[in-house]
Amino acid sequence: MTEVLVLVDHADGTVRKTTTELLTIARRIGDAAAVFVGSGYESAKDTLGRYGATKVYIADAAELDEYVIAPKAQVLATVASSAAPAAVLITSSLDGKEIAGRLAVKLGSGLVTDATDVTAELTTEQSAFAGAYTVRSRITHGTPVITVKPNAVTPEPAPATPVEEKLEIQLPESATRARIVERQPRAATGRPDLAEAEIVVAGGRGTAGDFGPVEELADVLGAAVGASRAAVDSGWYPHAYQIGQTGKTVSPQLYVAAGISGAIQHRAGMQTSKTIVAVNKDREAPIFAMADFGVVGDLHTVLPLATEEIKKREG
């Protein structure tokens, strides 16, 4: 079978869940082949095998970590030109989309971003205009480059022992023109990653700056915490947790919007959530029109009570 390349999304070898989703999709299409760039492969190895990578291309030269984006596109282009894969799958994130854009130009290939599904025949599904439309597409030129959104599929294990191939990558001068001079890993919160989380509890203007009730409900549900733009702009929560048009797009099983009115810019970031719950003092808030369940009330009393009740139920 033809290989389908999956760019491994990892932090020092800790493989992110999105990669196991991509491997699951890749197996529908052909043989899943992981491409690992950077340091830490030994920690990544088991996960890649467990989710069905039959081959792993490894580019772990220390130099690759010094530059943003361009080296990853270079490695993928090198592998793609020799392996002639059926497609290249990349996580749809800020970095992933930049890599995909570069790769598409290098390969002379068509590109689809933000896919919410990919079929065995490489038809992609996307959500457009803040979730108002579903769009199906096909790439008609070159090696299809597709970025896939987190939570597009449920990762399915399919244990394999990957054949490893080490790559010697010569970075062209053009790939080294933007150099990282300092890096601060995002502070660990102990909560799931926002983009990958099964459950997200998000707070907005209605928190009035107090995210305590939001975080406590999130923790009892094992959820990630998000914030509306209003909350972020007010300095109440870091931008890395912003959900919406100008922040992250999430697609969890459950989305709890607390004190968020649900303006179009916010809906663009969470409209594809499976189940939506809203708590808001304003009965007219647009969020209620899309909620599967809503409470008209103050989140500062509703959330803590719900948290207590859930703790009781779970004993």
Binding site: R136, S137, V296
Partner: peptide, 27 residues
Amino acid sequence: WSVVTEVTKRPPRSAGEIVDDDGNGGA
């Protein structure tokens, strides 16, 4: 280099049950 084969308007999400917090909203 890519072609859109189908565009479908999603049915708007319909609102579910909305309750007033009478002290019992959390529960």
